[in-house]
């Protein structure tokens, strides 16, 4: 018995010495040229598959992804953020990407037969030590769904990259076409910029860039262009004339926006419409995208979006039904242009 214990202790000591040498002296070869030892690939991949299957949300929690605007937005984001490693469907990965370890699979292969919930988990969480990054917008899980919608198109075999960004007038600054690929091109889920003023747009872009406003899509976009370009972009998009006409908004939404309730402040006191237009750093909402408004109101209410104590306090008591009413009502109002609305 004593000999057994001594042997075990000696083995444990040897193991510790070996581990210390591996880490401390650098015995382990980290070269990606060498590949993995036999069996390691199987262990890593099986761990990855099982970990995702264990943690992904149940399939009945997946929202309706049939709105084509979702896949269009996802495709734009994929083209900018994901394609550098996974390549567009049917396109080749660069030789450099193919030399990664593990090598990022081409997107048609990467989507495999993962379910929507599993794709969502992978895109939001990323895969540790594989080079697959986490979603940059913390607590913005729902923002991943457009990418999932696009990846489902890829799974179905009809996921091509989006059409090239729209042709812009000659006075458009550099990178404007990149922004216009979503803003103004995709109907739904993407906020319009023409109704805002330059100061507001620049402030939001800077918040995205420094990560104080959370959005995996916009944090990526605002850091994909040089910081020096942001001011010109904000000015140019703010200068676009606001177009559009009034639609039919829900009447309860009007009451809520214009008068508020005993729990909800009147949105119009700061955002308009009405004579009591407040500070110019507060965005206009008339004609804004309904989905975008609803998402942002929930983010304010749930404390994910912050930066304005007033807005956080204003949204705190909103119910889901009230949020949907407000979003639908503001979206149906005739757009005004903040560049032309003077503050009192």
């Amino acid at each position: 018995m004593r000999r057994v214990l001594l042997t075990l202790a000696a083995l444990a000591a040897l193991g510790l010495v070996g581990a210390a040498a591996t880490v401390g002296i650098g015995l382990y070869n980290v070269s990606a040229q060498e590949g993995h030892w036999p069996g390691v690939r199987w262990v890593l991949h099986t761990t990855f598959r099982n970990s995702v299957e264990l943690r992904a949300m149940p399939e009945d929690a997946v929202p309706d992804l049939s709105d084509p605007a979702l896949a269009a937005l996802g495709a734009r984001h994929f083209a900018s953020a994901c394609a550098p490693c996974h390549a567009a469907p049917g396109a080749d990965r660069t030789a450099t990407m193919r030399a990664m370890l593990p090598v990022p699979p081409p997107i048609g292969q990467a989507v495999g037969e993962w379910s929507a919930a599993e794709l969502h988990w992978i895109v939001y969480n990323g895969i540790k030590m594989s080079g697959m990054p986490a979603w940059p917008g913390r607590e913005r899980e729902a923002e991943v769904w457009p990418v999932v919608a696009y990846l489902q198109d890829v799974q179905a075999g009809d996921g091509a990259l989006p059409p090239p960004p729209p042709e812009l007038p000659a006075d458009a600054p550099e990178h404007a076409a990149y922004c216009a690929g979503c803003h103004g091109s995709i109907e739904g889920h993407v906020p319009r910029l023409d109704i805002q003023n330059a100061a507001y747009l620049l402030e939001e872009l800077e918040e995205f860039r420094e990560g104080s406003r959370q959005s995996g899509i916009m944090e990526h976009a605002a850091s994909a262009v040089p910081e020096a370009a942001l001011a010109d972009l904000a000015a140019w998009f703010a200068a676009r004339p606001a177009t559009g006409t009034a639609g039919e908004g829900p009447r309860e939404g009007a009451a809520l926006a214009m008068r508020g309730t005993r729990d909800v402040p009147a949105c119009s006191a700061c955002h308009g419409p009405g004579a009591t237009r407040a500070r110019p750093d507060i965005p206009l909402l008339e004609g804004q995208d309904r989905h975008y408004l609803a998402v942002q109101l929930r983010l304010w209410r749930d404390g994910v979006r912050h930066g304005s104590e007033l807005m956080a306090a204003a949204a705190r008591e909103l119910s889901d039904a009230e949020i949907d009413l407000l979003a639908a009502w503001y979206a149906a109002q005739e757009p005004r242009d903040a560049e032309e609305v003077a503050a009192p």
Binding site: G260, A266, A269, G274, T276
Partner: peptide
């Protein structure tokens, strides 16, 4: 934006919070 929460009758401020 004080009128979002406070009413002052006779003005446009009609908040009820």
């Amino acid at each position: 934006g004080c009128g979002a929460c406070h009413a002052i009758r006779g003005t446009g401020h009609v908040g009820q919070v």
